[in-house]
Structures are given as structure tokens and as C-alpha cells.
Design a protein around this nucleic acid. Structure first.
Length: 465
RNA sequence: GGUGCCAUCGCCAAGCGGUAAGGCCGUGGCCUGCAAAGCCACUAUCCCCAGUUCAAAUCUGGGUGGCACCUCCA
């Protein structure tokens, strides 16, 4: 397996720090609003990574956090009149529901910041003791970046003191512009506070990840975990800061490899709250099936920018349709996957998750499968093998797992189905009577309902267009 | 101002020095009562300029045009 390490900025051979075990930490969502397509892409990117590693027979442990305490959440609490837990539980659940719809496998560990307070406080205490952090007037605790000789090694960003060119607003209490808050003291009228040896307050943004990783993974003498992941925008300052505090706390690097996914863009611009062009997953799911959305979002390499638009999504769906069209021709139970196919697919994915290559391997298999079935439609062994191939695709990429006929009928309710069946029967009678004008009229009738009919040797089937 | 990424057929998108994968769309054909689906066939010299090399979309230098990070962000 080769992966692109975003710190080294090159593809590197992946080798776990401990035998066959792979530990991955992925920066999860801050639960103060519904998840958007960017969250989907990040989750999907690492879902594919985990699935690939598992297919390569690694034993993977994925940890994905929920940030359930921070400024934006507090603002939401104040503005909504609801309690902190009401807000965070609501959006955590919605996030999980959205991810389920997209076929994202659940993480093995899903820690929440508010449930990791002991680990967070312990880490800050230790950083203060070791003189890597200082308490400031007012109660804030800052990390002293000047004490970390390797600060900057993750993002390669140079933060200058005289940063007049930068958009950074300097906070007066910091000793150095690179310093960042480990603990934010409670404002006078603030009610959402946590106890700590350094006064009431709440954790800074970066510390929770370090604390959770420290709590859940042990690693070896050089690294705590194998892979640390997240969106490209987290590289700086989030991951730089996280790496710094972890390094100073434990004396070892937090992660051996860093992987970052690219952005989802709308009309060529980054999708973000401030630009007002966010696209919520739940809204996309109203118009498209979760699997179709999933397939579209994973079809572009994870490090590239992803420009979302509905025409491309439609085109992408047609590609997925082809997989199901083949599956439609297959029996319900398989035998074993074609070795050459499996190897080619894994080989593609082992190259830093080369999804384009993988999809072309699949398209090739589908084309050859159809052709072979055209030639020899009764070949049971072939059919079983083809089904097994699709089952392997499902395991590796999380697509193609549905029952084929129902895939093409998603979103059609029972009463409509009954109507369709009735018209279909009528049309069959017309066809038997060679009344093709009537048969075509009935087909037109269904077409007007968005239903397409396809006549096959074994009868007529219908699909939603 | 600093730091990066990107530019390949109408559209999406591989390629990482050896002579342009795949999908969508389109055209022609087979199949079909007609269709749909499927199958077959056809469709690019890689933003521009210069250089390195026997050989460059791939490396180097210089342009041009996008995008991102340096502020909460996936």
C-alpha cells in the first residue's frame, strides 16, 4: 500500500508501526449544525481508506471524534434557548444518520470532547508542569510554541511575529503569535463551564484530539498512531498545533502518516458557511439516493478538489446503473471472486486510493461480463463469479450492495407500484394480441409517470427513470 | 505579503520519462414488433513559451489562468 503523506508531500510506502495493526484518527464534526457535503467527502475518503486497508488484511481501528463543546456550539445554545446536550445530541444523531445513508461504516471509537475532559485536563496539567504551557492573566492557558523545536514541521507554515500581512488578529495575552489556547477561561456570564485545576473554562479546539488519541492509543516509542486524517483545511493550524502539544506531552510524534482530503466546491469555490454556499447532506438525500450520492462523491480522487454539480451527479449515476444492470442479470448467490479482477482492483486502490483506476477496472469487468453473458446466457458458473465480483466491490467501495431490481425502483411507493403492475399486465395482453399501438400507448402512459419499461425474454420489467 | 495545489477530448477523470485508461454525451451498426438495456465500431497529443533527453502530458525555467491555507472550517 502506498499513500500520500501530506506532511512529507509525497507518496510513501505504508508500513504500520505495530505488526498488522493500523490505528487511524480522523477529525470528525463539530456538532452545531447539519452535516454538509464536505463532511460527507471527508468521511467517505477515510471510509474508503479503511475498507481498502481491511481488504488488504490489515486490522484497522478507526477513531473519529465529535467536538461537542466550542464557541459555535455555545452560540447556538444561546440563540436556540436549548441546552448544550440537546443541541449536540441532536446534531450528532443527524450526522450519524446522514453517514449511514451514505454507507459510511461507523468508527470503532467515537469519543466526545465533553466525555474526554479528564484526559484533556491531565494533558494540559502535564504541559504546564513540563513548562510547555503557561497560564495567563484571566485564566486562559496557552501552549508555548517557542518551546517546541519542531513547531512548523507538519504544515511547513512560517508564522512571522511581524505578521502585518497576515489576517491573524493578535491576542494580547499570547507571548508569541504562534501560541494557541489549550484552555479558555469562562467569561463572567458564561454558564457552560468545566472545572479544572486552572479554573473554570473549556478546552481549546486542538487539545481534544491530542487527548483522545493519547487516551485510546498507545503506539510505539516513535509514534502514537499510524494515520491521522482530516480535511485539507485542518493542516494548519489545527494539525500543526495538535502535533506540537502531543509531541511535547508524550515525547513522540502523534502520527506516522498524515492524510488530508480535498474540498468540495460549488461552482469552483470552496463550500463554506461564510460564503453561504453550503450544501447539506440531508438536502441532497431528498433528491438522490444515498448510494448514488456516495458513488458520485467517491468517484473523484480524495486529494483533488471536488466540484459538485447535479449534471455530473446524473452522469455518475448512469455509471453506477451499469453495475446494477449487470447484477440484474445475475443469480442471488455467488461463488468466489475472480482473482485477476480482485487483484487489479486492489492494486489500483493500493496506489494511494486510485479510484479512477479502480472504477475503470470495474467498468471493464462489467463490459466483459455483459459480453460473456450475451454470448452464453446460461453459464451458471460465470454468473456466480460475476456476482461474487460485485460482492467484492461492495466490500471494498460500499457500492452495488442492493438488490438489483429494487435499486432501479427506489423512491416509488407501493400504490404507484400497484398501478404500474396493472398497466404492465394490460400491456402484456396487448402485446400478445399484437396490438402494438395499444402496447406503445401504455408504455407512453408509464413514461409520463417517469417509469421506463424494458421487455426481456423472461417478461417485462420496469425502472424509475 | 507568506505557503501550497491545480490546468489532459463538449463534460467528469486516470497518467508520475517510453509514445494519451475509463465513464457521460454524440454518431453508425447488431439485437428488438418498436423501444430500453446490452454488445461492436468511431471521436484528444495533453494552457502557452523555452530547455534537458534517443524519447516529455509526464523533468527544469519562465509565463497565463483557476483554487486553497495563513481567521471558525471537512
Amino acid at each position: 500500500m502506498v499513500i500520500f503523506d501530506s506532511v512529507k508531500k509525497e507518496k510513501v510506502e505504508f508500513a504500520p508501526i505495530k505488526g498488522n495493526e493500523v490505528s487511524i484518527y480522523l477529525c470528525g464534526p463539530t456538532v452545531y449544525d447539519d452535516a454538509h457535503l464536505g463532511h460527507a467527502r471527508s468521511s467517505l475518503s477515510f471510509d474508503i481508506l479503511v475498507r481498502t486497508l481491511k481488504a488488504l488484511r490489515y486490522n484497522v481501528t478507526l477513531c473519529k471524534n465529535f467536538t461537542d463543546i466550542d464557541d459555535k456550539i455555545i452560540a447556538k445554545v444561546k440563540q436556540s434557548g436549548k441546552s448544550l446536550s440537546e443541541i449536540t445530541e441532536l446534531y450528532t444523531q443527524r450526522y450519524l444518520d446522514d453517514m449511514d445513508a451514505l454507507g459510511v461504516q461507523r468508527a470503532d471509537i467515537e469519543p466526545k470532547a465533553t466525555e474526554s475532559m479528564d484526559a484533556i485536563r491531565d494533558m494540559i496539567v502535564k504541559l504546564i508542569q513540563k513548562d510547555f504551557a503557561y497560564v495567563v492573566e484571566g485564566g486562559d492557558v496557552y501552549f508555548d510554541s517557542s518551546k517546541d523545536a519542531h513547531y512548523g514541521s507538519i504544515s511547513h507554515q512560517v508564522v512571522e511575529d511581524s505578521a502585518t500581512q497576515s489576517r491573524i488578529e493578535h491576542t494580547s495575552h499570547k507571548r508569541n503569535p504562534k501560541d494557541f489556547a489549550l484552555w479558555k477561561a469562562c467569561a463572567k456570564d458564561e454558564t457552560i463551564c468545566f472545572d479544572s485545576p486552572f479554573g473554570e473554562g473549556r478546552p481549546g479546539w486542538h487539545i481534544e484530539c491530542s487527548a483522545m488519541i493519547d487516551k485510546h492509543f498507545c503506539g510505539n516509542e516513535d509514534y502514537t498512531i499510524d494515520i491521522h486524517g482530516g480535511g485539507a483545511d485542518l493542516l494548519f493550524p489545527h494539525h500543526e498545533n495538535e502535533a506540537a502539544q502531543s509531541r511535547c506531552h508524550s515525547g513522540k510524534e502523534v502520527a506516522k502518516y498524515w492524510m488530508h482530503n480535498g474540498f468540495v466546491q460549488i461552482d469552483g469555490e470552496k463550500m463554506s458557511k461564510s460564503l453561504g454556499n453550503s450544501f447539506f447532506i440531508k438536502d441532497a438525500l431528498k433528491a438522490y439516493d444515498g448510494e448514488v450520492l456516495r458513488f458520485y462523491l467517491i468517484s473523484v480522487h480524495y486529494r483533488n478538489d471536488f466540484n459538485f454539480n447535479e449534471e455530473d451527479l446524473q452522469a455518475s449515476k448512469k455509471r453506477l446503473d451499469k453495475l446494477y444492470r449487470l447484477k440484474k442479470r445475475l443469480p442471488s448467490s455467488g461463488s468466489s471472486v475472480n482473482k485477476a479482477f480482485k487483484n487489479k482492483l486492489l492494486e489500483a486502490m493500493s496506489d494511494d486510493l486510485n479510484i479512477s483506476k479502480a472504477l475503470s477496472v470495474i467498468d471493464e469487468m462489467v463490459g466483459e461480463g455483459n459480453e460473456a453473458l450475451d454470448r452464453d446466457s446460461k453459464n451458471k458458473a460465470l454468473k456466480k463469479e460475476l456476482l461474487s465480483n460485485i460482492e467484492f466491490i461492495e466490500e471494498l467501495l460500499g457500492i452495488g450492495g442492493k438488490e438489483a431490481v429494487s435499486y432501479f425502483q427506489i423512491g416509488v411507493d407501493e400504490t404507484t407500484k400497484a398501478t404500474i403492475e396493472r398497466v404492465l399486465e394490460e400491456r402484456n395482453l396487448a402485446k400478445k394480441a399484437k396490438d402494438f399501438a395499444q402496447a406503445d400507448a401504455l408504455r407512453e402512459q408509464l413514461m409520463a409517470m417517469g417509469i421506463a419499461i424494458m421487455d426481456t425474454p423472461t417478461g417485462s420489467v420496469w425502472e424509475r427513470v
